Computed example of a mutant assay.
Amino acid sequence: MNKKIAILRGINVGGKRKILMADLRVLCEKLGWKEIKTYIQSGNVIFKAEASNSELENVLEKAILNTFEFDVPVIVRAAEELKQCVEINPFFKSEEDINHLHLTFLKEKPTKENIEEILSYNYEPDQFKIDKKDVYIYCEGKYHQSKLTNNFFEKKLKTGATTRNWKTVLKLVELSG
């Protein structure tokens, strides 16, 4: 079985769309997933399963809707994919950078036209680089003050997105190793 990471968008924020991680683990067990671990309340699940990433996304989204009665977008990556993201982050040069770094996961690879359009804007001092279905972000200040939000990338790239800070990304790689 392949090790995977499911990244949920927008749960347990401001008391809305609340899902306890224990309940999420039970739900994933019912789906037949193995070796399930969750990490922090933002909805990160490490597990083993055989299906494709997109199949796993659809199955978990439907299971959450049926169980908790609200929509939660889910993005799944193979553990090896996430490890490669860490290795190629263009903004990670030293531990000093870690608090400025974020990774936005895209549901689908954006079109060339949408990438060209988004690159025509200037967002300084914040910076980003798009690589396939990932967006590497460097925020000079706090992420919540940046224009480089999930909504921004979803609107401009016309695909679903969710973001994790670099500390969380590193921990997910460690837990999935």
Score class of each variant (00 low, 15 high):
D97H: 15
I19F: 00
L20G: 15
I46E: 00
K3Q: 15
D134V: 10
F152W: 04
N165Y: 05
L119M: 13
L20F: 14
D134W: 06
K107M: 05
E69L: 14
E55Y: 11
F153M: 12
L170A: 03
A6R: 01
I118K: 00
I7Q: 06
N58V: 10
K107V: 01
S54L: 14
G160S: 12
A78T: 14
A49H: 04
E113Y: 07
Y143A: 04
V76H: 03
N53C: 10
F47N: 07
K129M: 13
E29C: 11
E113F: 01
F70A: 12
K133L: 10
N99L: 07
N150W: 03
K30P: 06
G141Q: 04
G15R: 08
T163H: 00
V135T: 00
L103C: 05
D126S: 14
K112S: 13
Y143W: 07
P90Q: 08
V26G: 08
P73A: 11
G160C: 09
T67K: 10
I75E: 04
E35V: 14
L148R: 02
L60M: 02
D126K: 01
E61C: 05
V45N: 04
K62P: 02
L65D: 15
D131V: 14
N53L: 08
L106H: 00
V72R: 09
K142S: 11
C85H: 08
F153D: 02
Y123P: 02
Y121W: 12
I5P: 02
E81S: 09
T38V: 07
P90G: 11
E124S: 13
K3S: 15
K129D: 12
E57Y: 06
V72E: 08
G10D: 05
E80N: 13
T168P: 09
N122P: 10
S54R: 11
E50F: 11
T104K: 06
P125M: 03
F91M: 08
S120N: 11
L157P: 04
H100I: 01
L101F: 07
I75D: 02
K3N: 13
K18Y: 09
W166Y: 14
L8S: 07
L65P: 01
G141I: 04
E50P: 12
L56K: 04
K109R: 12
E140P: 01
I5M: 06
K18R: 14
L106M: 06
F70S: 10
I137F: 05
V13K: 09
N150P: 05
N66K: 12
C139A: 12
L20D: 13
V59A: 15
I118E: 05
T163S: 09
E95F: 05
I75F: 02
T168C: 13
N66Y: 08
D131F: 09
K112P: 07
K16D: 12
D131E: 13
I40H: 10
A51K: 15
V59G: 09
R25V: 15
I75Q: 00
I11M: 05
I64P: 04
